[in-house]
Design a protein around this nucleic acid. Structure first.
Lengths: 253, 253
DNA sequence: TCAAAAGTGTTGAGGATACACCCATGG
DNA sequence: CCATGGGTGTATCCTCAACACTTTTGA
C-alpha cells in the first residue's frame, strides 16, 4: 500500500500522462516442464494476487501500451499479444478505490476512477522472462495453471475469460509457436495441447495429426542424453504455420 | 454538421454525462429476403456512411450503453449483443475532430477527444426494427451486405472485424435464433448460413446436418399459399440450442 | 533383459459429400 | 404437363479414434 504522499504523486502523474477510465490487464501464459504457467503479482501486505496491468498513455496505441507494460514485468520486447475482451462493470475495481478511501478523498485519488479494462493474453517463452514486480507489488512470479491462488478485483473472471479465448483460438492463432522454445519434441508439444485443453490426448493420433498439418520441420539429430529412446526434435515451419492458421485447423481435439 | 451553438451544447452535455475517451460502435445485422443487412447512418451533407454508435454514461455498464444506443436507433429492447473488439488507434477518429476544427477549438470540442471504441455486433429481427436517425444523421437504413457503401472513420475495419467474428462464432452463438423470425423454412435458414459464410451449401446435406443437431422443432402445418411444394415450418428448440452451443457444433461448413 | 519412452502401422465406425429420386403446385 | 421448389434416400470417401507392434535406451 502506498503512503499518502506516494499516492498523491502517482495520481498527479497519472492524470498528466494516462487516459482516464482505461486500463489494461494481461494474462501472460508461459509453458515449462509440462505445465502451463501464468504470471502473477502479489501486492504489498496482501494475500491475494493480481494480473499484471497498467494504463494507456494519452496518445499511445493500446497494443503498444500492453507491450510497454509487459516489457516492465518480463523484460521482453515484441511479445505476442491478443486482445480478448473489455471488462466494463462500473464497480469492477471497487477493491482498489476502497483501499485508499481513508488516505485520500476520491476526487484526488486516481484509483477511485472507474476503469474499463482491456484484456490481453500474452504468449511468451518461459525462459526469456525475468519477472519484475511493479511499485505496488511485493513479488512477481509464475504460478501453475492448476495451482492458481485467489485473485483480487475481477481478475479471476479476466483470467478465466482469457483461458477460454486461448482454447477457442488454439486452431487459429500461433499458440504453439509462441509458447514453445525453438526446438522441442513431439511429447512436449503434446503436453502443451493437453495443458491448454485440460484433457489427455492419444499420443499416436496427436503426432499424426500435427504432422499432417505440415507445419513442423524435423531436425536431423534426435535429442541425446535422456533415458529411453531418443525423441526427434521439431521446430515450426513459420510460413506453413501462418498459412494453415488463416484457414484454421479443421476439426476438434 | 452541427452549428457552433449545437456543438457547444452537445460537448457540455457530453462532458457532464459520458466517460471521456470511450465510445461504442455497433454492427447491427438483420436478415431479409435471403440477404444479410447492416444498419447504417448517413450524416447530414455526407456521401459516406457510419455505423450506429454512442457513448457510455459515467456509471453505466457498457453492455447497457450499447443496448441504450441501439434502442434509440431501432426501437428494440433486449437486443442480442456480442462484444468483439476494441479499436484503439490514437488517430482513428481524425475525420470527426477535423470536421469541426474551424468551428470550435479542440479543447472545447468533445469530438476532438481521443476515443477508444468498443465494437459490438447485434443480431435483430429485421421486421422488429424501425430505423431512426440520430441528431447527426440524415437517414438510418438497412444496407445489403454485398452492396455496402463507403464508410467513414475506421468503420470499414470495424464492420469487417464484426463479420469475421460472426463467422467464427457461427457454431458457438445463437446466431440463427436471433436473426430468423420465430418460424421459418429450411431453405430460408440455409440462405442465412450461405449469406454469413459467403458460399453455397448443398440443400440436402444442410438439412440433414441441421436436423441432426436436434435444435429445431417442425410445425405440424407446412406453409401454404406459395407456389410449388409447401415447405415445412421450423422453430428453434431453445433449450437444446443452448446446450448444443456450449459444446459448439462440430466440424466446418 | 526388462521397463519405459518413443516411432510407425492398421482397422473400423461415423460423418461428410455428391449424387438420384420422388412429391407438390402454379402457370 | 412441366418447370421449379422442396422433401427423402443412398453410395462413396475420408477423417478420426482406438487399437498393436516395433525400436531404442538406461538401469
Amino acid at each position: 500500500m502506498l503512503t499518502k504522499k506516494q499516492l498523491i504523486e502517482f495520481s498527479d502523474e497519472a492524470r498528466k500522462n494516462y487516459l482516464d477510465h482505461i486500463s489494461i490487464d494481461c494474462v501472460v501464459f508461459g509453458f515449462h516442464e509440462g505445465q502451463m504457467k501464468v504470471l502473477l503479482l502479489q501486492p504489498h501486505d496482501e494475500k491475494k494476487w493480481l494480473l499484471p496491468g497498467g494504463f494507456v498513455m494519452k496518445r499511445e496505441p493500446i497494443e503498444q501500451a500492453a507491450n510497454r507494460i509487459l516489457k516492465e514485468r518480463t523484460g521482453l520486447d515484441k511479445i505476442f499479444l491478443q486482445q480478448f475482451y473489455v471488462f466494463g462493470d462500473p464497480d469492477r475495481a471497487k477493491f482498489h478505490s476502497d483501499l485508499y478511501k481513508d488516505t485520500l478523498p476520491d476526487h484526488e485519488n486516481w484509483f477511485s476512477n472507474r476503469f474499463l479494462s482491456i484484456g490481453y493474453y500474452a504468449l511468451v517463452d518461459f525462459f526469456g522472462v525475468v519477472p519484475q514486480p511493479d511499485q505496488f507489488s511485493e513479488t512477481c512470479t509464475w504460478r501453475d495453471l492448476d495451482d492458481m491462488p485467489e485473485l483480487l478485483l475481477d481478475h479471476e473472471q479476466i483470467f478465466k475469460t482469457a483461458l477460454d479465448a486461448l482454447r477457442l483460438q488454439l486452431n487459429h492463432q500461433p499458440i504453439g509457436y509462441n509458447l514453445m522454445p525453438r526446438e522441442f519434441t513431439m511429447p512436449e508439444l503434446q503436453k502443451l495441447y493437453e495443458a491448454i485443453l485440460g484433457k489427455k490426448l492419444d499420443r499416436r493420433n496427436f503426432q499424426r495429426r500435427i504432422l499432417g498439418f505440415g507445419i513442423l520441420n524435423r531436425a536431423e539429430q534426435p535429442r541425446k542424453g535422456g533415458a529411453h529412446k531418443a525423441p526427434y526434435l521439431y521446430s515450426f515451419d513459420l510460413e506453413n504455420y501462418q498459412n494453415a492458421l488463416t484457414e484454421g485447423f479443421r476439426g476438434g481435439w
